[in-house]
Simulated assay, not measured.
Amino acid sequence: MQFDGAVIREQGVTFAIVIVKPHVLTTTLEANRTISGFAPAFPGLPVVLMAQDSRGRATYYGRRDITNFLSRISPSRIPWKRYTVS
């Protein structure tokens, strides 16, 4: 499986962000299942999901302190990379 994401250390907190399709964030059940699915790729780190609408506006789902931080920065500042997990 390949996906785009990032690992960030900010203000003493290290966390992972994974880009998902917007429909993943439509229900908390699906969003939480998706976080659980990505958790093994980032052992011990909180995982946040990010989806963009057709205008490129980002929506985040995950730990509130992290999503609040991310909502104040541009997604272009995040060091995205492609991950491959088997």
Rank of each mutant, 00 (worst) to 15 (best):
K81L: 05
F69S: 08
T14D: 12
Y61H: 05
G5H: 07
G37K: 11
R57F: 13
G37C: 06
V18E: 05
R9K: 15
I66M: 04
I17P: 00
M1F: 08
K81V: 12
P46F: 09
Q11R: 14
Q52F: 06
I17S: 03
I19K: 13
Q11P: 00
T14R: 11
R72C: 11
V47C: 04
V7P: 08
P43S: 10
S76R: 15
V47H: 04
V7S: 05
I78Y: 03
T28P: 08
F3C: 09
R64C: 00
N68C: 00
L45I: 07
R9G: 12
R55I: 09
S54T: 14
G62T: 08
G5R: 01
S76K: 15
V85E: 06
K21I: 07
L25G: 10
G12F: 07
D4I: 12
F15D: 05
E10H: 14
P79I: 07
E10M: 03
P46C: 10
R72H: 15
L70Q: 13
A41F: 06
I78K: 01
Y60G: 02
L25M: 11
F42C: 11
R57E: 15
R63Q: 13
A6T: 09
R72D: 05
T14S: 14
L49M: 04
P46S: 13
V48T: 13
G12H: 14
F3I: 12
I8W: 00
P43L: 11
V20G: 03
R9I: 10
F42H: 06
T26K: 15
T26P: 00
T84M: 03
D53T: 03
A41P: 04
T34L: 03
Y61K: 02
P75A: 08
M1K: 14
T67C: 09
E30Y: 00
S76I: 09
R64E: 11
R9F: 04
R9H: 11
T67S: 01
V47E: 08
T59R: 15
R33A: 02
I35F: 03
R63L: 14
Q11C: 06
